[in-house]
């Protein structure tokens, strides 16, 4: 029997299907947009199509993320913090600290050797240091989120970005560009500013080896570099880093089916 995890984030919705051996067999990724229920359905359908076998039954679905209560086919809901902890532990069993930078919030999570959450800290009060901050910076410059990582890596003289407010940073970037500053130096400065905030957040839960970077922003190579430079050490980033919450949710779903089997 297969299981699924659906992570409805503010920006993207992710779905993962696991087989009975906890192997990832299907992935779905879609823009959340305004209709959260539709996004959950879309990501789930994609993951089912991706899990090529058409002869399987989904035994249990766990919803997570800020829109977890809007997954109509979810059997239960688990917070994204628990799911990120579980998912990071699955991919990197030695992980003790997780940095999750999503579209609208940033979290530092501390987990035990078993992948259980022991502490966490988050910023969900404002867009500073989140994906929205990067998005706004990219859009002022006229680039997409996918481009800015590469571009920022070309920087030789990163600028210091002083504003933390996303609204104000847009003006700050415009004035740098008006003064003829290079786009890559501005972006590297933006990455450094976010890295500074993220590391401060991680320090509050304790910076233990190993560190795993998750969430949509972890796809940005420039951000990964900025965080590694600030920490003076490497961090784990999986190609599945954006799916970690959904993977964790699917793992919880798998555990539920095991309990059911054990009980019957």
């Amino acid at each position: 029997m297969y299981v699924a995890g659906v992570d409805v984030g503010s920006t993207a919705t992710k779905a993962i299907i696991l087989d009975e051996n906890q192997r990832i067999v299907g992935r779905g990724l879609t823009h959340t947009g305004a209709n959260v229920i539709k996004a959950a359905e879309r990501a789930f359908a994609q993951a089912r199509a991706d899990a090529k076998s058409d002869d399987y039954e989904i035994g249990f679905v766990v919803g997570t993320g800020y829109g977890r209560y809007k997954v109509p086919f979810g059997n239960t809901q688990i917070t994204e913090i628990g799911c990120h902890g579980k998912g990071a532990h699955y991919l990197f069993p030695e992980t003790r600290t997780i940095l999750d930078i999503g579209g609208q919030d940033t979290k530092a999570i501390k987990i035990s050797a078993q992948g259980e959450v022991s502490d966490f800290c988050m910023n969900d009060k404002c867009a500073a240091g989140t994906g929205r901050f990067l998005e706004a910076s990219a859009s002022v410059i006229g680039l997409t989120l996918d481009d800015i990582g590469e571009v920022s890596m070309r920087s030789v003289h990163p600028l210091r970005i002083t504003n933390m407010c996303t609204v104000f940073v847009e003006s700050e970037i415009l004035s740098h560009l008006a003064r003829g500053k290079k786009v890559e130096d501005v972006l590297r400065g933006v990455n450094n500013a976010i890295a500074g905030r993220s590391v401060a957040l991680m320090r509050r839960v304790g910076l233990d080896d190993e560190i795993t970077f998750t969430g949509g922003v972890s796809r940005n190579k420039g951000m990964v570099t900025a965080i590694e430079e600030r920490l003076e050490r490497k961090v784990n980033v999986s190609p599945d880093s954006q799916f970690i919450g959904a993977i964790g949710a699917a793992l919880f779903a798998w555990e539920r089916t095991q309990k059911k089997v054990g009980a019957s």
Partner: peptide, 16 residues
Amino acid sequence: SICAVLAESEVINQVT
């Protein structure tokens, strides 16, 4: 939301 940027998303949700 206190944050102007997050308020924007909230506004869009209210519209939907």
